[in-house]
């Protein structure tokens, strides 16, 4: 397609749109690197939703009350829905769900490392809702204003549902804390396991996060990792107090001067190890996704064949 407008001018328009905090739409001109970054980030987010169905999903069958079973099944179903909107957002840039699924299964694209930790008790359903979905919300609410239109609009809906998920998790923990001693111990044990991985969800410290600066200039990212981590800690502390649980960090304390909490650093060696594939569940999560994809291949082929036959029949 020939264009009457020269590239420098298009680039200037693009920059002005981002500066005005307006949306970039799929048919707008955009730098190739921007397009690539959006696809990578949205795909990674979509994969996280889909892989994130697994740790909680395996507890649906063991939910200890029918009401909890309904809540959990509906929640995990929502995650599938989020994956669906996000894959649709990447389709507006000409990248299909099949291509991205292939990238996920072959390990060329990542998903949130948090899902490489196991869910070991029913309390984990609550903790994942409270801390993991809570951290996700901190990361995601600013993305409602991200510069790429389809992503930003998908995020508005996703954030509403995620905040609901977070609240169901908190409510489950609150209920369990009112129960037996065993239940209270189960909650504390679960919080102990998830606290540090939840802090890691904001990504490496700013001085070790190579993509942050460019993503912020493009309006894809709107806050740094450390800023978001601090907000998350400050918001979680009073919630833990209300629940009656503690976080496993001896350095966690209120700093009057900064009007914020000081806190310890997660084990970043562990973080990189898990990112690189050595977490407790990396192989299991991908194998599960691959199995579902392989087992369903004949169904997707049959649906395509059926659609083709219908087309011929009505032509």
């Amino acid at each position: 397609m020939s264009s009457a407008v020269a590239e420098p001018e298009l680039a200037a328009q693009f920059d002005a749109t981002v500066r005005r905090k307006d949306r970039i739409e799929p048919r707008d001109w955009m730098p190739d690197a921007y397009r690539k970054t959006v696809v990578r980030q949205v795909a990674q987010h979509a994969h996280s939703e889909i892989i994130g169905m697994q740790p909680e999903g395996q507890w649906i069958g063991r939910a200890p009350s029918l009401r909890r079973k309904a809540i959990l099944l509906a929640k995990v179903q929502d995650e599938a829905g989020h994956g669906l909107y996000l894959y649709s957002a990447t389709e507006t840039l000409g990248v299909s769900r099949d291509e991205l699924t292939e990238m996920l299964i072959s390990g060329r694209q990542k998903y949130s490392s948090i899902f490489n930790y196991p869910a070991l008790s029913y309390a984990d359903v609550g903790t994942i809702g409270w801390l993991v979905d809570g951290a996700a919300i901190c990361n995601q609410v600013p993305l409602c204003r991200t510069s790429f239109g389809p992503y930003g609009r998908a995020m508005i809906r996703i954030c509403k549902e995620e905040s609901f998920h977070q609240r169901q998790g908190f409510e489950l923990l609150m209920t369990m804390m009112r129960g037996t001693d065993e239940q209270r111990a189960m909650v504390q044990e679960s919080v102990n396991r998830f606290w540090w991985p939840a802090l890691m969800m904001f990504g490496p410290p700013d001085d070790a996060s190579p993509n942050t600066e460019q993503s912020m200039a493009w309006g894809i990212k709107t806050h740094t990792n450390d800023e978001l981590r601090q907000r998350f800690v400050d918001m979680s502390v009073p919630q833990a107090k209300a629940l009656g649980v503690t976080f496993p960090d001896p350095d966690l304390k209120w700093n009057e001067e900064r009007q914020a909490h000081d806190f310890g650093q997660p084990d970043w060696d562990e973080f990189w190890d898990v990112v690189k594939g050595n977490g407790p569940c990396n192989a299991q999560r991908i194998a599960h996704r691959k199995q579902a994809c392989d087992d369903g291949a004949w169904v997707r082929e049959a649906a395509m064949a059926f659609a083709e036959k219908q087309k011929v029949a009505t032509a």
């Binding site: 889909i50 169905m53 697994q54 999903g57 649906i60 069958g61 029918l66 079973k69 309904a70 099944l73 509906a74 995990v76 179903q77 599938a80 829905g81 994956g83 669906l84 894959y87 769900r97 599960h288 199995q291 579902a292 087992d295 369903g296 291949a297 169904v299 997707r300």
Partner: peptide, 27 residues
């Protein structure tokens, strides 16, 4: 509900969860 995260595609995953949720409500 055993199909959850295992269905042939996301649309069917969601649809099977809907059926499971309806039946759970009836139960």
């Amino acid at each position: 509900s055993e199909w959850c995260s295992r269905a042939p595609d996301l649309e069917e995953d969601i649809a099977l969860a809907n059926v499971a949720l309806d039946l759970l409500g009836q139960a």
